[in-house]
């Protein structure tokens, strides 16, 4: 899910229906659909506010659509099961993670081609860019780590291993990553570990682990960053964390198998 550039609309990828549904944020009504988008899994909105770059999970491609006209613009070949999509703030590069191929593909939108394939650890899922755009963080779900790529050189420069007490390595399956706007802190949903890791970005060290619900996947920070919301895929609820005290305040039952979160609080 994503807001439009002015947040008046939001977009939802409907993989089983091969379409992107567009809703009014204020009215929560369906406005229109972009149809014939092959199995859209994840997507990112280009800074120009017009282009949507979508990973097509079943087709090993990433495709670009005009969000106003619904027109298909172009696509790029990726490895199997592309998921995470991340556009740089200057709109020049798009990163796409291909889960099955353990690759991060780098698409140069101006050159209109894939310019690099970076081998990362097993099953890369989602991205976060540091606010200064120098580092790309990618979660490697099966490997249980977050890989860190230097954007300038497109090389792996580090990684973070998560070791919550009492859990085996295979029980830690990181998925979503969010960073604070000042780039000092990152939060990583650890999937099967049922926890969220709190990471100091500069030192790449884990400050704390916060226990949430079953299979923590999607994350979202409130606008003032005082609250972190966690979608727990296997307990059908949402956990709310106080980001100052790093404590879980409450968990709220939601619908079946919650996946991602969008907050209308600007």
């Amino acid at each position: 899910m994503h807001f439009s550039a002015d947040r008046s609309e939001f977009y939802v990828a409907c993989a089983d229906d091969d379409q992107i549904a567009i809703y009014s944020t204020a009215e929560l009504t369906l406005l229109r659909r972009i149809r014939s988008v092959p199995a859209p899994e994840t997507f990112d909105l280009h800074p120009d506010g017009r282009r949507l770059i979508v990973s097509n999970e079943e087709d090993a491609t990433a495709s670009v659509y005009d969000v106003e006209s619904g027109e298909f613009l172009t696509d790029y070949e990726t490895g199997e099961e592309p998921e995470g999509v991340q556009v740089t703030a200057d709109g020049r590069l798009v990163f796409v993670a291909s889960e099955a191929a353990n690759l991060v593909h780098v698409i140069d939108l101006e050159a209109d081609e894939v310019v690099a394939d970076i081998l990362v650890d097993t099953r890369p899922r989602r991205f976060a860019l540091t606010p200064d755009q120098t580092e790309l963080w990618v979660s490697a779900e099966v490997a249980g780590i977050v890989d860190i790529i230097d954007v300038a050189t497109l090389k792996l420069v580090g990684d973070i291993l998560f070791t919550p007490t009492g859990l085996r390595r295979e029980q830690v399956t990181p998925v979503d990553i969010v960073m604070t706007a000042d780039g000092t802190r990152a939060f990583v949903a650890l999937g099967r570990a049922n926890r969220v890791a709190v990471v100091d970005v500069a030192t790449r060290s884990v400050i704390d682990y916060v226990l949430v619900g079953k299979r923590a996947w999607g994350l979202q920070l409130s606008a003032d960053e005082s609250r972190l919301f966690v979608a727990n895929g296997l307990s059908d609820d949402l956990t709310v964390i106080n980001t100052q005290s790093l404590e879980a305040i409450t968990s709220i039952p939601v619908g079946l198998v919650p996946y991602g979160i969008l907050i209308d609080d600007h």
């Binding site: 081609e113 894939v114 310019v115 690099a116 394939d117 970076i118 081998l119 990362v120 650890d121 780590i145 890989d147 497109l154 090389k155 792996l156 420069v157 580090g158 990684d159 291993l161």
Partner: peptide, 15 residues
């Protein structure tokens, strides 16, 4: 792990 990853990182041009 990190050393292995550095050794593996490839930068492939499509030419």
């Amino acid at each position: 792990m990190i050393i292995k990853c550095l050794a593996l990182a490839l930068f492939v041009w499509p030419v």
